[in-house]
């Protein structure tokens, strides 16, 4: 069974004059890597938080598993959908194992005690993200790449069906970024849904199955498979500046470059 999150006609704003999202309808599902791309301030992070019910839309509706997202209890929702915010760091020292164990929260009882099964899942998530050797380290002492892998392990420990990741690779160098996206592909192959915000259009073209392209006017400009979304017309509409779309030399997938001859932006 595929698990779907469907957004229908979502609008959101913090104040009436400043819209953040306008009439966005989209759907994401398990087993698929969906990339959310678009210019700064297009509303990507807001869309992600609307999809998991952390924000309430001004208009429109989000359904999770065919029910309104708010109809699920907070914990029940967190067992289906895990959300990883952008650039977070803990308020105090925590070991890596503790950070991953935090992910078990929606599965625990009133006093929050972890059982043997929970510890086994924590270990499995550490192993899956190749962070087991870091388990005793202080999270604050880790490098950017290590931190993102540990945070991924911690949302995986929720055992969700769909992961929502807000710019997980923005602080990573190229090899680490590629490794992170490969990991996401592996997870999707295990029937996990992954929704990932990124500014790296080419990385999204390489590793995502589908894309949501948000525009600077806060609407959804294109959605669908990579080839359908990454067109020069679509990108120009979304970013308001012209980008060239070519072919990746190895894979033949769309490859976006900035034309240097023309004036951009």
């Amino acid at each position: 069974m595929k698990l779907c999150i469907e957004a229908l006609g979502l609008s959101f704003s913090y104040s009436p004059e400043v819209p953040v999202l306008r009439d966005v309808s989209a759907s994401v599902r398990s087993g698929v890597v969906t990339g959310i791309i678009g210019p700064n301030g297009a509303g990507k992070s807001t869309l992600l938080q609307l999809l998991c019910g952390l924000l309430k839309p001004g208009a429109g509706q989000v359904t999770l598993d065919d029910q309104p997202v708010a109809a699920h209890s907070d914990r029940a929702r967190a067992r289906l959908v895990a959300y990883m915010p952008q650039s977070i760091s803990p308020a105090f020292s925590l070991s890596v194992a503790d950070v991953v164990a935090l992910g078990r929260f929606p599965h625990l009882g009133a006093f929050g005690a972890l059982g043997d099964g929970d510890h086994a899942i924590v270990q499995a998530c550490l192993a899956q993200t190749e962070t087991a050797y870091l388990a005793e380290r202080d999270f604050l002492s880790l490098s950017g790449g290590e931190r993102q892998r540990v945070l991924l392990a911690s949302v995986l420990a929720q055992e969700p069906r769909i992961l929502l990741l807000d710019e997980p690779t923005s602080a990573l160098d190229l090899p680490h970024e590629v490794a992170f996206f490969r990991q996401l592909r592996t997870l999707a192959a295990q029937d996990l849904g992954v929704v990932v915000i990124t500014h790296d259009i080419n990385m999204a073209a390489q590793f995502c199955d589908e894309l949501l392209l948000l525009g600077k006017d806060h609407t959804l400009v294109r959605q669908g498979d990579v080839k359908a979304v990454l067109t020069e017309a679509g990108l120009a509409e979304a970013y308001g500046s012209s980008l060239s779309v070519g072919r990746h030399p190895e894979t033949g997938t769309p490859f976006v470059t900035v034309p240097m001859g023309k004036k951009t932006g």
Partner: peptide
């Protein structure tokens, strides 16, 4: 207050992360 201990742990990474984990 003791019954909230697990929820306070979730606050380590801020309110948004805690909310994502299912803390009200």
């Amino acid at each position: 207050l003791l019954m909230q201990a697990g929820r306070y742990d979730q606050f380590a990474f801020g309110t948004t992360m805690a909310a994502g984990r299912g803390v009200n």
